[in-house]
Every structure is written in C-alpha cells, then in structure tokens.
Design a protein around this nucleic acid. Sequence first.
RNA 1: GGCGACGUAGCCAAGUGGAUUAAGGCGGAGGUCUGCAAAACCUCUAUUCGGCGGUUCGAAUCCGCCCGUCGCCUCCA
Length: 490
Amino acid sequence: MALVLFNTFTRKKEEFIPLEPPYVRMYNCGPTVYDTFHIGNARNFVVVDVIRRYLMYKGYKVKFVQNITDIDDKIIARAQQEGASTEEIARRYTEYYFKYINLLGIMPADENPRATEFIPQMIEFVQKLVQKNSAYVVDGDVFFRIKSYPHYGELSGKKLDDLKKGARVDVDPRKEDPLDFALWKSAKPGEPYWESPWGKGRPGWHIECSVMSMAHLGETLDIHSGGIDLIFPHHENERAQSESLTNKQFVRYWLHNGFLNIESQKMSKSLGNILTIDSILEQYDPEVVRYFLISAHYRHPLDYSQTNLREAKSAWQRLVDSTITTDEIIRLLLKDGSIRESDIAQMNETIEQRLSTFRSQFEQAMDDDFNTAEAIAALFNIVGEINTLRENINQQLKNGHSPEPGKVSYLSALNKLLKELIGVLGFRLPEKPTLSSELTDNLIRILVDIRQKARQQKLFEFADMIRSRLNELGIVLEDHPQGTIWKFKQ
RNA sequence: GGCGACGUAGCCAAGUGGAUUAAGGCGGAGGUCUGCAAAACCUCUAUUCGGCGGUUCGAAUCCGCCCGUCGCCUCCA
C-alpha cells in the first residue's frame, strides 16, 4: 500500500517517496525557548510524533531533527524584562520543553540542534549568499534579496504584488525590497552578540532552520513540518535562502498542521487565552491529551474545550478498559486451568485473515495522509470485536461449557494487535503491575477472595464495604463470570 | 483589499461522484447480565450532509451564487 501525504507545496496528496529509501530525513520546526509551550504547540509535537512513528512502523529508517531556537528577539525581550541573561531564559524553557514532551510520550528527536551552537555555520551560510549576490549588507545587517530568487512566493502561493499591498508593517527603508528579510541582525547596545564579518550581531530567525537542518540531514530534506502559520514567511524564506545557496530542492514534502483554537478562537497572548501544557496536564492524563489532539485530522482546525477533553477521556477509557479486561480475563482462564498457554498460541488461517483485515483498515487510514481519526475508528472496531467475543465466551461459560480454545486464541491475538496499534499512535497503556507493586496486587487479591467468600454467604453488606473502601482508594472491582478482576480507576 | 480553509446527528469527527444501512467516539433512551454495582453486550438516537440553483442516469461529494465561521498576508505551532 502506498503512503500518500498532502504536500503544502503542490497543494495535493502525493505518494511519499523519500530521496533515498528506506531513509527518511525529517525536520520539524522546534520551539523558541522564551516561554512555556501551549496546547497548540503540543498539537504540532504530537502530530509530528505520530507521523514519525508511523513511518517507522512502515519500515522507514527515519532520522528526525528538531531544533531549539535559543537566541532570538523574544528571548532577548524576555531576558531584559526579567533582568536575566538570555542563557538563563533559554535554559529554563528548554528544560520545560523537554520535561513536557517527555510527559506527552513524544519520542526524543535524534538531534536537537541549538541555534547558538551553529553560529559559525550560519555566518558562513550568509557569507556565501552575499557572495552569490543573493544577499546584501547594510550597516551591519544582512538582508536576503528576494528578487534574486525567482521562486519566491511559490510555497505559500502568494503573489509578490499582493504581499506588498497587504503589508501592515512599517518597511525598513534600507531594504531594497520590502519583502527582503534579515539573515543577520546587528546587535543593539546591551544585546547578546557574536562577532561576524559585518560586525557584532546575531542570526536572523529564518537562517537557523536552514543551517541546522542541512547540518544534520543534508541539502535536501524529505519532510519539513510545522504549524500552518509557519508557511509564510518562515518556510518561504527558508526555502528561498536554502535553494539559493545549494541550487537544489530544499524539501520534498512540506507538511503543515492546522491550528488549535480555544472556543473557536485562535490562541494568542493578546486575547489572553493561552493554555499552557502544564496547566492541562494537571487536569488530564497525557494519553487523554494525545487522544484529543489526534482525534481530528492534523490539517483541520481543532477546537479545545473542556467538553472535548472529557469526551476524549471517556473514549480513551473505553480503549484502555478493553485491553485490561481482556488481559485479566485471559489470566483468570489460565489460572483456573480452563485454557492453556499452548491453546492461546494456536493460530489458524481464519484468525490470521481476520486480524489482517483489522490491521489493513488501520493502515489504509494512516496511509491516507495520516488520517488518525479514521485509524482510531479502526481501533474501536477491534474493541467491538474483542468485547463481543468476550461476551460470547461469557455466554458459553454460563451455559456450563468451557471456553473454546479457538475463541480464546482469537481474543488474545486481537488484544495483542490492538495494543500494538495503540502503540503505533504513540499511546502508552497503563503499565502492568511491576515487581514493586506485586505486593499491592497480592493484597488486593486477598481482599477480593474475602469478598468472594462473603458474597457466597450472602453477606452483601460486608462484601460491598470491601468494594467501596477499595473504590475510595481508586481501585475498581469488576465481577466477571471468570472471576473478579481489579483495575485502577482513571 | 489579496489568498485560503471550513460548515455532516444533542456534541466531537471520518467520508469527498455510484457496492453500502453516511465510519468511529461522546452523550441519551430502553433492554440483557449482576445479590446490587462496575464493565460489557443488544436495540434505538442524520431518508440526510449550511441555503438555493445547476451539471449528471446518479452528488454530502463537481460547478455557481448566497449565508455563516475561521485562518494567513505581522511575532506566532
């Protein structure tokens, strides 16, 4: 099956063919570490994480690079505001960034280059552009000359004339063209700086990504991603300067995720509706947040609301519950000897067939421009099959028959498949009791046994007390025909 | 002003010319199971896809107009 993705550049879905299969060079515009990151940033990080994981699942060898912009105007502004150094600010929010992407279950990038580590390469890059006449120097600033790059505007689909008409910012009169942008900025007094051929200064914000992506991935990237707002001017400028330097295609596939809105409105500082990721993770499990973030197609706008998060929580719960209950039921069946490990391992063609139908439903969805909404639907179809099957086995049990080994092995295989695909989307299921919590498990089982005795003797008040006291501790008991199982309340 | 996206059940959200009952989830109603629960299962919850026209044998899917929502063009994921 061919993987198809929507390329912002062509505005079409295209089959994904990396430059040198099976290698994939992937770059995502990372954070500028001047502040905490918000749920909208999280959407980008999670979406890109899912894309990366799926490419790996498909057998690609992905090298994933995400930069950290640790010097720029906003960091300087923040530092001055707080009377701190830019390094301090950058360090603080870099830590924050790593802490929270880790909590969100985002795989660490293969490389996280920082802008300040690549200043010499940036200077060299700019120098070459000046030599090629693609850039010019004015009073210690260096500007990119967009006239030198005939393809300017192609990525964002903008006409240069329209851009000029729509300009809402005062134009720097030293620019040859209002659309020329800074490659190197001279330092004002009190600002951090690096020595350069043009005097003291710092890199412009677009040059960083070009330099750092090329440093780690070469001159042509397979995938370059970011939020939809980065198309213009950031990615347009990256493309212009990179291709001017190399005369090669900079990016094969441009991917952009849609915005996350708050109550249908864009998040912005001026509206004061920024939701930082830490405030959300205080209320919701990271997996719930991930579920919410990929419950809609990545290119569509997504609306944040408490209702939507609560909905995600219930849906995620259904997924988790199915896997836990199935695990526990199989465990009980093994324990009382009504089924054996060797029975479970038994596969046959019918089972294989059905499993692959479920798997391919998932893959078809993901192959179609990473349609996570549909992929999740595929997951729920598996859940439905599992739960119906379990019900079926319950029925047999109640009728005094021991469960058919074929059914149990199908159940077990479905459960395994479900867990695998949940993992492909980057979700983490609650962990099995570890060695340290084995004691807990054993203690609860003692209580479960005592309650069972009480129920047999119709001491329901006593039995219910055990159940409700455990419930107060966040432990839920469920009585199944195979026996009683326990779970942690979510 | 220029460019673009979107409008599918109470809510979230796939589908984008014809197999098909228009996925899946949340919520709700009724039932089954249970000592009671929980979880789960079963049934029901869009003759219809913002509105009006058009193209077509056939449209939620294509075209036009209208209404509504949102975004980019400026730092921004």
